[in-house]
Amino acid sequence: MKNRPEFSVILLLVSILFTSSTVFAQPEPIRLKTEKVLTGNWDYYIERVIDARPPGQVYANLWYKDVSGKMKSYPSDLSGGSKIALSNFMINGLPRNTEGRPLNIRILECIIRESNESTHVSGQLTLKVQFEFEKDWGTQPLTTYSMNLKYTRSINNLEYIEPALRKVLGNSLKYIHNWMKKEATTNILLAKGLKLSFRNYQEQDPDTVYYQKGRSLSFNDFQAKPPQNTRFQAAIFPSFGYDMQREFKGGLIQVQIVLKVYMIRSASWAFPMIKSTYSLNHEQRHFDLVKLISERFKLKLLSEKLNPDNYEGIINFEYLEFYREMNRLQQRYDQETNHGINKAKQDDWNRWIDSQLNARLIAGKD
């Protein structure tokens, strides 16, 4: 995920200083009103609010003048508790389309601190929240928002605090709405799904033969010098791999797997005296078996329920599984045909490989 700078707003609001000398007992907790900050029909909603503030932190320290005229500071909370009040406001502040994607809001800081300035009170309301998706594997942070709102008030005018708090909370909801609109088509974290496609790599280079339908091997592709003291008459070194190309388009992660089925010329060899059509066919079938495994790998991935959160791990896991299967199948092929010496078994394998490849290529539309 890209590191995005924290969005900060600093506002300075100066209220009218009341000179009233009214005195009263310690005020009641602030009653936070709920309101619909924005209306509309979007593909996301606020599912839950997580209170991640430090345990035991006092929500507000407010000043007032008691019945004797003495200035006092007292700890205050929202009516019903700030955790519940903040959650109710955030969840109900935006349209609740539960068919859309659920967003969480993690409250990192929400606090009011005041100081007595003799004739008036100076205060600061601080909010910091993180917006995130909750995934099967854990939490995916999206962006953070913070705002500091400074104010002044007369000593016994507490009516300004609740509207100021609603303003700060409402601005955070407006921020995530605008962020979602802006990032929807460009931020891969907001992908709604995944589209998988495949392509066979067929470009050739001097030392590598990539598998091509209709392009059979020739002994010119066996360019290594035969080793001394070997009991084999020929050897081919085929394998397969893949490249993964990704693009975020139309709200989907477009993933293309480029399959590479190949043999290495400089690692493959054959003695001149065994260069016959029959012996070449045995080596060709080694190459065909790798192609068959790559098609099985392809069809396995198409059957998986891949999503933006799990596709990389699943693709890599399945590749390793089919790579091991390729080695097992190659070993079994050589054992049963005795490296091509058993002609009856070779014929059986020829027919089986052809039938399997034809079925796979038709299913895979190669």
Results as ranks from 00 to 15, higher is better:
239 S>W: 09
249 K>T: 14
249 K>W: 01
226 P>G: 10
243 D>I: 01
234 A>E: 06
235 A>W: 08
207 D>K: 13
206 P>V: 01
210 Y>E: 00
221 D>M: 07
233 Q>G: 15
232 F>V: 11
204 Q>I: 01
238 P>W: 00
212 Q>I: 05
211 Y>Q: 06
207 D>G: 02
238 P>V: 03
228 Q>D: 14
245 Q>I: 15
239 S>Y: 09
214 G>W: 01
210 Y>C: 12
247 E>G: 03
229 N>T: 02
246 R>A: 12
217 L>P: 08
241 G>C: 02
215 R>M: 12
243 D>A: 13
247 E>D: 14
246 R>E: 15
220 N>C: 04
206 P>Y: 08
249 K>I: 07
226 P>H: 10
214 G>A: 06
222 F>A: 07
243 D>E: 14
233 Q>F: 12
233 Q>M: 12
226 P>K: 06
237 F>A: 15
213 K>N: 11
244 M>H: 02
248 F>L: 10
220 N>T: 13
244 M>N: 02
214 G>N: 14
230 T>F: 00
235 A>I: 12
250 G>C: 04
243 D>K: 14
232 F>T: 14
240 F>R: 05
233 Q>R: 12
244 M>S: 12
207 D>N: 15
241 G>L: 06
242 Y>P: 06
217 L>F: 08
216 S>N: 13
222 F>P: 07
250 G>K: 04
218 S>K: 02
229 N>H: 03
226 P>D: 05
217 L>G: 05
230 T>A: 13
207 D>P: 03
223 Q>S: 11
205 D>S: 15
209 V>E: 08
244 M>F: 06
204 Q>L: 06
211 Y>K: 10
250 G>N: 11
206 P>H: 04
240 F>Y: 13
248 F>E: 13
247 E>W: 00
241 G>F: 07
215 R>E: 10
206 P>K: 11
209 V>M: 04
211 Y>N: 08
241 G>P: 03
240 F>E: 10
241 G>E: 09
205 D>I: 00
213 K>I: 13
220 N>V: 03
246 R>L: 14
250 G>R: 03
238 P>Y: 01
225 K>A: 10
229 N>L: 07
244 M>Y: 04
212 Q>F: 02
210 Y>S: 04
216 S>I: 01
221 D>K: 06
205 D>R: 13
229 N>Q: 09
205 D>Y: 11
242 Y>E: 10
206 P>R: 09
205 D>F: 07
237 F>K: 14
221 D>N: 11
230 T>Y: 00
217 L>Y: 06
224 A>E: 11
